[in-house]
Structures are given as C-alpha cells and as structure tokens.
C-alpha cells in the first residue's frame, strides 16, 4: 500500500478520534463540576456516592470500563442495541471516566479559594449562586488549568483505547493496516498524528492560560 493511501485511511480514523476527544470534553468538563459538587456536599450520602464513584473510575482500567459500558446493556439487561451504540458507549465510558478526574481537580481548585472571597461576596449581598459563578468559579478555572491540560493531553492518547471495542478511530485503523501489510509503517504514521494532535492541544491550552494571566 502506498503511503498516501495509508495517510488517507488514517485521516479518516483521525476524524473519529477527534470526535471522541471533543465530545468527551464537552460532556465530562461540566459533569466533573457536578461530581465535585456531590463530593463536597453537606449531605453525607451524596458525598459518599461521589467518593465511591470517583474511586472506582480512577481505580480501574479505562479499557475495562469501555468494555463494561459496551457489553453491559446486553449481558446485564439483555437489551440489543443498534450498531450506533458502539460509538455512544465510547463517549459514555470516556465521559464518566474523565469526569471523575476533573471532579478531583475542581475540588482541589475550589478548596484553594480563600474563605475571605466568600465572606466579601456575602457581605456585598451576592446570592450563593452568584457567588459561585461570578466570584469563585472564574478563579477556580485559572487555578486548575494546568492540571486540566495534563488530563486533556492524556485524553488524546487515551482515545486509542477505543480499539478494544473496534471503533474505527485512528489507532484501530493503523493496527488493521499494520496487520494486513505486515509492516509497522502505519503505526509510526499514527504516532506522528497523535504527536501533532497533542502539539495543537498544548498550543491551545497555553493560549488559554496566557489569556487568564491578566491577574495573579
């Protein structure tokens, strides 16, 4: 197979990788905030549920979680899902996994905000809701951004784990080509793609960090 054909096939896979990447961030970043809220709740059962959830998500392999989310509807509930479910399962598995990591990052960020910020806001009459979204959260984002960047870069590489339920993303495609051609060239090209992908991610995150650098 000629190199241009390999690249063409890989680019097709890359589109799927990017979809997984973007959809995971879209859902897990806000979900992580909700989980962090549960983790810090005054209501003990909620706190406990969030804690167990986070510990399972962080304590078991993501690859295993992908398989469970994909097969559970059939083997546990006997439901036959359409072919589309394969992709949905990937998004669900990545989202719930990354939300757990983001939740812990948010929690650290929220706890790092000085109690004087809450007190100043309260004395000025801000509601709890306003205090969180106007005063606290913007400061939290700045604090947690470097940790979020680390997770986002890991996510780029983790998308390749979807090969385990045969999603035709870049790594799955590269593996198939490598097997049929008896050559690792396609895998090396895929490696270059992941690397470039992450260079772009790092560039974008650095840009956001710089934008937030207007205060200390």
């Amino acid at each position: 197979m000629i190199l241009s054909k390999v690249i063409e096939l890989l680019l097709g896979g890359m589109v799927t990788s990017i979809e997984i990447f973007l959809l995971t961030l879209l859902f897990s970043l806000p979900l992580g905030l909700v989980v962090a809220g549960g983790r810090m709740s005054k209501f003990a059962p909620l706190r406990w549920i969030a804690k167990v959830y986070i510990s399972i998500m962080r304590g078991t392999p993501l690859m295993l979680q992908l398989i469970v989310v994909f097969f559970a509807p059939y083997y546990v509930f006997g439901i036959n899902l359409s072919a589309d479910y394969r992709f949905i399962a990937v998004i669900i598995a990545f989202t719930i996994n990354y939300a757990a990591y983001f939740a812990e990052i948010y929690r650290g960020g929220i706890e790092s905000i000085n109690s004087g910020q809450y007190e100043a806001a309260q004395v000025l009459g801000y509601s709890k809701f306003q205090t969180f979204f106007i005063i606290i959260l913007p400061q939290v984002f700045k604090v947690v951004l470097p940790s979020i960047t680390n997770e986002v870069i890991t996510l780029v590489k983790d998308t390749s784990l979807s090969f385990v339920i045969a999603i035709p993303e870049m790594f799955t495609v590269a593996k198939q080509i490598a097997a049929s051609e008896a050559s690792i060239a396609a895998l090396l090209v895929a490696g270059v793609f992941y690397y470039v992908f992450n260079m772009i991610v790092a560039f974008v995150m650095e840009h956001i960090e710089n934008r937030l650098d207007y205060y200390e």
């Binding site: 004087g116 910020q117 007190e119 806001a121 306003q130």
Partner: peptide
Amino acid sequence: TFGLVFQNFNLFPHHSVMKNITNAPIKVQ
C-alpha cells in the same frame, strides 16, 4: 445596608478595580 472592610481587603483578584466596585451595585442592588 452595611459594608464591611476587611483587614486583608478580600478584593476579587479576577475583577478590575472598576468591576470590584460596580458589580454588586449592578448585580445585587
């Protein structure tokens, strides 16, 4: 209504001086 001035100011670091002063009168009052 009352105001409270803290020992360590507790200004909102992500808001400009103007926004620190104007935001509550606009959003709260």
